[in-house]
């Protein structure tokens, strides 16, 4: 198994996260170390084992489908890095 610099670039792209060129080879080495270590799971026979879907045997509770918090635009936008007339502002998406 080998994660090379090209693979690092590809994963970083999927994660929408800039990785500096100078950090790529170090990251590749570390990811390989971690994945090599994880490979010991291959020893475990899981042929007839079902994957975990819930940690406890609890049935997830549901709440009533009711609107509870209305009209909090000011609160919602209070942390925005850039907004205008109740909208978040982002770089132009549609040409």
């Amino acid at each position: 198994m080998a994660i090379d610099k090209a693979k690092v670039k590809e994963i970083a792209k999927l994660a929408r996260m800039k990785v500096a060129d100078k950090d790529e080879s170090e990251l590749a080495t570390e990811l390989n170390q971690i994945l090599d270590w994880i490979e010991q799971l291959d020893e475990v026979d899981t042929k007839n084992v079902l994957p975990v879907t819930s940690v406890t045997s609890e049935i997830l509770s549901q709440r009533d489908d009711k609107v509870t918090n209305l009209d909090q635009k000011d609160k919602v936008l209070a942390n925005s890095p850039s907004d205008n007339s109740d909208f978040y502002v982002v770089p132009k998406v549609v040409e």
């Binding site: 929408r16 800039k18 942390n79 925005s80 850039s82 982002v90 770089p91 998406v93």
Partner: peptide, 21 residues
């Protein structure tokens, strides 16, 4: 987009990548 740090980029994807980077 909605809170915390924003690092500007040439387009939306570039902004995401720069911010998260």
């Amino acid at each position: 987009v909605r809170y915390g740090l924003r690092v500007d980029g040439s387009d939306l994807n570039d902004m995401y990548e720069a911010t998260r980077g």
